[in-house]
Amino acid sequence: MTNQNSDRILDLSATAPEAIVSQSEVTWWRRLYELEWCRRLLVLVALAVLWEAYARWLDNSLLFPSFSETVAALVNGLKTGVLVDRILTSLGVLIFGYAVGLGIAVALAMVAMSSKLGRDLQTTLTAMFNPLPAIALLPVAMLWFGLGTGSLVFVLAHSVIWSFSLSIISGFDGVSPTLRMVGRNYGLRGVSYIWKILIPAAFPSLLTGLRLGWAFAWRTLIAAELVFGVSAGSGGLGWFIYENKNQLEIASVFAGLSSVIVIGLVVEYLVFRLIEAKTVRRWGVSV
């Protein structure tokens, strides 16, 4: 006969296992290989070496200047201040146009969220203008605003408005009903409800929109400046590239192109990635 009272209760605290089973040193190159920036650096160095080798083999600095010539032109441009001046001009116009675009996008989103007709207005406008590359509007912009900052701001704003207003609306639409009820439960209404519930809850979408808008604006600006870039004697980075191509300073053209890339990367990594790390990543919400 089996024992009816056969329950076994073990005292696990007495036999708590060691968490670490085994341990061994990791080789230094393995540790470096595990670092993302280290691998990225390796890729960059490899590309630079390839570039240098191909350019030297081609030996035609008019068609394809070497990496070292490009770096020299870049350093020279920074030293004389010409390149710095061009970059600052471009960034100034860019920030202004970007801000104007964001402002209009916010206004448009507010109209869209106020009524069904407003929503249809926004949807129709966005469907019409979103596929239209901003640069295609440059000829009419020049006609309306002349050769100057006005035209640039116009095309920049156009490149930002549609995608950002879409992000605002999809972000606000996506705020969960539960969160909305929580906000109202604690007595929030009007501006404080938008500020304390809707905007933070829609933030992942807003950030995506800001990022996308910035990328569009940056590309649009350089392209527009290639067409015309001088207003009151100071041109932008696009103009710098165009000007140097005309003067057959091809190394400087490459230096200008490198600056466009570097600025794009700096804004992406030092501004948007940083904001992302401090907000959506920390909050664990998907972008």
């Binding site: 539960t178 969160l179 009820m181 929580v182 439960n185 933070p200 809850a201 933030f203 664990g284």
Partner: peptide, 20 residues
């Protein structure tokens, strides 16, 4: 007549917490 903090609701959904 309207929601107010004298009647606090607690929901089933986990997203009732502010993730930020």
């Amino acid at each position: 007549l309207k929601p107010g903090p004298d009647r606090v609701m607690m929901f089933q959904e986990f997203d009732q917490l502010l993730p930020w």
